[in-house]
């Protein structure tokens, strides 16, 4: 195919539309992630300690701010203002009120607050801001939102929206896995180190929830999991290749990708991995944010069915009357 032909196909691909149910579920989970990320710092009385200078309860003589705090200054008022703004924006994102603006405000709040102390955070902050940016780019309040209710008097709107933001979520998820897998160059992640990385990582006191000496008795299982995690991360792009191959008219790869439950296999291993991490380690909101990305695997009709099951489950548990 010629270059103009490829470009035309790309433009057409970017213009594809689908109902917004998946994006709505992503929006709800990410709004909750914003609230959780900020509120645990508040609940642990760490706002001043982490994000302010020594004169205001912090431990550092001076705080090096990011872009916005560089403009408005780092004071208790501006930092607490950022905290409150972030929490309110997180709530608005969750309930879908205010269009794309709350997602951008939440993004900036998380980014600016965590930039105040870059040593006190992790990849989950970037994972969250990347996701919020995709919400800014998407029409994620189209359905299952207060905006939808205000617009139509109903909480559901089947008007199709651009599918590309959901696909970008999926690409981001795959990119995260591939990137982290490609950087696992330690001997311990490879056959040369006996696939012992997970065992030794679980012996580090920083992240674990409780003493992990017992893992020595299931060492072979940790070796299998080390190899599986490493291969899963490095091989994550195969998911995108497989999903793309399904649209090919013919060929062995196309046939194989149509036969295999690619999304299900990916979700089963990936979600299992994150649940395992969450059970054994305290890595903050990392697992919740990562698992939220998995919603992008759902086709809108599947997201709708999941939402219906969830709301049916909640309403059937609610007390009568």
């Amino acid at each position: 195919m010629s270059a103009p032909g490829r470009w035309a196909r790309w433009v057409s691909f970017v213009q594809e539309r689908e109902p917004a149910d998946t994006l709505a579920l992503l929006r709800i989970c990410l709004g909750l992630a914003v609230i959780g990320t900020i509120s645990t710092v508040v609940a642990h009385d760490l706002v001043a300690f982490l994000w302010l200078d020594a004169a205001n309860g912090g431990y550092r003589e001076t705080v090096t701010p990011g872009f916005l705090y560089g403009l408005i200054g780092v004071t208790p008022t501006t930092v607490w203002g950022g905290v409150i703004l972030g929490l309110v924006a997180g709530l608005f994102v969750t309930i879908g009120l205010g269009g794309r603006l709350p997602a951008f405000v939440a993004l900036k709040a998380i980014q600016e607050l965590t930039d105040l102390n870059g040593s006190a955070g992790g990849s989950y902050d970037a994972l969250l801001t990347n996701a919020l940016w995709l919400l800014v780019l998407s029409d994620a309040t189209r359905t299952l939102s207060m905006d939808c209710y205000h617009r139509s008097g109903r909480f559901r709107d089947d008007t199709p929206v651009l599918a590309i933001p959901r696909r970008l979520f999926l690409f981001q998820l795959v990119l995260v896995y591939w990137s982290t897998g490609a950087q696992k160059v330690s001997n311990y992640w490879t056959p040369f180190g006996g696939f012992s990385a997970l065992y030794y990582i679980l012996q580090q006191p920083t992240w674990h929830r409780a003493d992990m000496t017992w893992v020595a008795w299931i060492y072979p299982l940790t070796q299998v999991m080390t190899a599986a995690v490493w291969l899963f991360e490095l091989g994550a792009p195969l998911l995108l290749l497989g999903l793309w191959a399904r649209s090919w008219p013919e060929g062995r790869l196309a046939a194989l990708s149509r036969r295999l439950p690619l999304r299900g296999m990916f979700a089963l291993f990936g979600l299992g991995m994150h649940l395992g991490i969450e059970a054994l380690m305290n890595v903050g909101p990392f697992s919740f944010i990562s698992m939220s990305y998995y919603l992008a695997l759902l086709q809108p009709e599947e997201a709708r069915a999941a939402w219906a099951r969830l709301t049916r489950g909640v309403s059937s548990r609610a007390p009568a009357g």
Binding site: F67, L107, K108, I110, Q111, G122, S123, A126, T129, N130, L132, W133, V136, L175, V176, S179, T180, Q183, K184, V185, S186, Y188, W189, S196, A197, Y199, Y200, I201, Q203, Q204, P205, T206
Partner: peptide, 22 residues
Amino acid sequence: YLHAGTTQAWRMFVAPHRFPAR
């Protein structure tokens, strides 16, 4: 990266720390 918050640093558990400090 700055204004869209799209930084990407996915160096997660790249190696076990065999000599951790408690």
